[in-house]
Design a binder for these strands. Structure first.
Lengths: 184, 184
DNA sequence: TCGGGATCATTCGGTACCGAACTATCGGAG
DNA sequence: CTCCGATAGTTCGGTACCGAATGATCCCGA
């Protein structure tokens, strides 16, 4: 296995860390695995926002909302927040932004006036229908160089991590309310 | 291979997407791989901030700065921004926060007064020395259930994605200035 | 030596994002 | 019917974060 300059630098860092910590046992395999997740995520997000989303004045989060509504249809705020994996308060602001852009519309539920549903407008529908293939192309570009099997393996390993991070292990009782997989 | 309810839901979503897009070819393997990166990253980050960092009033970004300074030592703002993988402007604010907390100190470079170096204070050094093992424990917890080989494979696959997202392929010339690997 | 381009960091405007406090509404117990 | 706990959404305070504009300093050529 050839060693790259990057590998060298990594090893330097590990040596430095060990030097600072003495003989404490450290888990460098986990360190690299976990920290690389964050690096990859920000890199992918930043470039997507610059090269795919910016021309439509969409943030990553805004795109996610459109995508969720497109796939699963109109839904209430709470469910939308869960699907988008974001706090309710955050979602309120983002939906307001999209509303201002004319891409989604809020509607109070008649039978329970606390609730609000969010739906795509025709303009929002047109945009996401047009944009999603381009976004998928971008995703494919980000995964270029990986085989089909590797992509699936990557997705699987990440699911394990997400599950590990999902809920405090000492959360009271087994949260059956835990929302399932595909939020995006 | 057993199918979980999650798998079912995922397949529903795929069917729905296909229904909306007609016969356009879509790359679902890339879709799942890429979108799971972002989900895992936010889940890991959120929980780390709540359960490991909050008690020390540190954000993920703030922790990263301390960590970088700890491992590689005092450095100038521009390099620190590169290592932390954040925009210079963002870094300025975060360093100011840490400075207010007494964890880092700025110092103008005598020989070139445009430049500023950032270094850990004794308090900052004490904090990161104390905190890093706990953080590494947390990382190990997030990677629980993965074998050593799987962790390394995860890190490797993510490096490919990060590299793909690294710089616009049509960037003018080959950016030799591209900053190398381990930023965290 | 003095002016102008390059190069640092910081500031600025705007969105996203979280958690906690708040508001409006619902639904049941008495 | 009326209060009161529960629930859904919004507001609020604060940080992070980006990209563009600004300001300070340096360096070099005339």
């Amino acid at each position: 296995m050839p060693t790259s300059p990057e590998d060298d630098r990594l090893l330097d860092a590990e040596r430095d860390i060990r030097a600072r910590l003495g003989d404490q046992p450290l888990d460098f395999d986990s360190l690299h695995a976990i920290s690389n997740i964050y690096r990859a995520a920000t890199a992918v997000r930043r470039r997507a926002e610059r090269e795919v989303l910016a021309e439509h004045s969409l943030s990553w989060g805004g795109f996610t909302i459109l995508w969720v509504l497109w796939v699963w249809g109109e839904m209430e705020t709470a469910r939308l927040a869960a699907e988008c994996d974001t706090a309710k308060g955050t979602l309120t602001g983002m939906v307001s932004t999209l509303e201002r852009q004319g891409l989604v519309a809020r509607e109070r539920v008649e039978s329970d006036r606390r609730r609000v549903t969010v739906a795509l407008t025709p303009a929002g529908l047109a945009l996401i229908t047009d944009l999603f293939p381009a976004f998928n192309d971008y995703e494919a570009e980000m995964a270029a160089g990986l085989t089909r099997a590797e992509k699936n393996e990557l997705a699987r390993l990440l699911r394990v991590v997400t599950r590990n991070a999902g809920e405090s292990p000492d959360a009271t009782a087994t949260t059956a309310a835990e929302s399932p997989e595909p939020r995006r």
